[in-house]
């Protein structure tokens, strides 16, 4: 089956409903599985660790039917995976995330990616947390576990909108966690546009409080290749600043500047010790899963 482009996959109407998001998530995962990648996703339950009584929403595949036959009660086999991880998804909701490349906005892209990663994580038995931030509001939802809870997660995902900028003061956002025992992994999706190093500060805190931080740096294809119609007037989404430029004459200069900035950014990320991934929104979305899966050692 030919791969759908991101634009075809992440249709806005699908992204706004829970069912749609679930569909998208499954699509992305199946696209990932059918593509080339090193190693196989280890199914959940590689090794038996213990039985746990069945809760509504648990994966029926993990049900031990023989035990049911013997005991007339439903039990789930729990696998000896690494100690459970809480994956905390944080989405940047500043206005710059409405940037569109070929009709696909960074926000919608994040929705699709987050849905897929969340689906994956829940399927592996991890807990997931949803957050989305901008200067106007902070969203932080309680952690969810089990496939059955996916819809709640996806609901939150479908409702988010872009506004304002990245908050300057994060305050106690990352501090209160009931997750002191388990490992925490933060998945941060943003375009990393900051005025006063507010994101860098955040990331530093994040790195301190979590075991692992993955940064997905979302960039539109047109930003990376400077593919804009000639002689446009650019309007900054967050500040409203206007700049007119003749794109054909300045392409080379722009790309050089951009590469330099990106290089600096990568160094900065490396210094922080976060796992940084540059995402080109024009490339198939299933390619992003690679980094996540490897970090998580699925």
């Amino acid at each position: 089956m030919p791969m759908l482009t991101n634009q075809e996959l992440l249709k806005p109407e699908l992204l706004q409903t829970v069912e749609g998001l679930e569909l998208i998530a499954k699509e992305i995962l199946s696209a990932y599985r059918s593509g080339p990648h090193p190693g196989k996703l280890k199914g959940a339950g590689a090794e038996f660790s213990q039985y746990r009584s069945y809760q509504w929403g648990d994966d029926l595949r993990q049900m031990d039917w023989k035990l049911y036959a013997r005991s007339d009660r439903f039990y789930i086999r729990e696998a000896e995976t690494d100690s459970q991880v809480t994956v905390h998804f944080i989405i940047d909701l500043s206005l710059s995330m409405s940037h569109e490349s070929r009709g696909l906005s960074k926000l919608n892209y994040s929705r699709g990616l987050t849905a897929a990663l969340a689906y994956l994580a829940l399927g592996q038995g991890d807990r997931i947390l949803f957050s989305a931030l901008n200067s106007q509001e902070n969203i932080l939802k309680p952690p969810l576990e089990g496939r059955g809870r996916l819809s709640e997660f996806l609901y939150e995902l479908s409702e988010i909108k872009c506004e304002g900028k990245w908050p300057e003061e994060m305050g106690e956002f990352l501090a209160d966690k009931e997750t002191a025992n388990s490992k925490q992994m933060i998945v941060f999706l943003s375009d990393l546009y900051e005025e006063k190093a507010e994101i860098s500060k955040f990331l530093k805190n994040a790195q301190a409080s979590a075991h692992e931080v993955i940064v997905f740096h979302l960039m539109g294809g047109n930003e990376l290749t400077f593919d804009f119609p000639s002689n446009p007037e650019f309007v900054d989404l967050e500040t409203g600043e206007k700049i007119q430029l003749d794109t054909s004459s300045y392409k080379a200069v722009y790309i050089e500047k951009m590469k330099k900035e990106l290089g600096l950014l990568q160094d900065q990320m490396a210094n922080l010790g976060v796992h940084y991934q540059l995402v080109n929104m024009d490339q198939p979305i299933s390619d992003c899963l690679e980094g996540f899966i490897q970090s998580r050692n699925y």
Partner: peptide, 9 residues
Amino acid sequence: GKSIQIGSV
């Protein structure tokens, strides 16, 4: 030319 909204200028 046409107005293009961009994430950051």
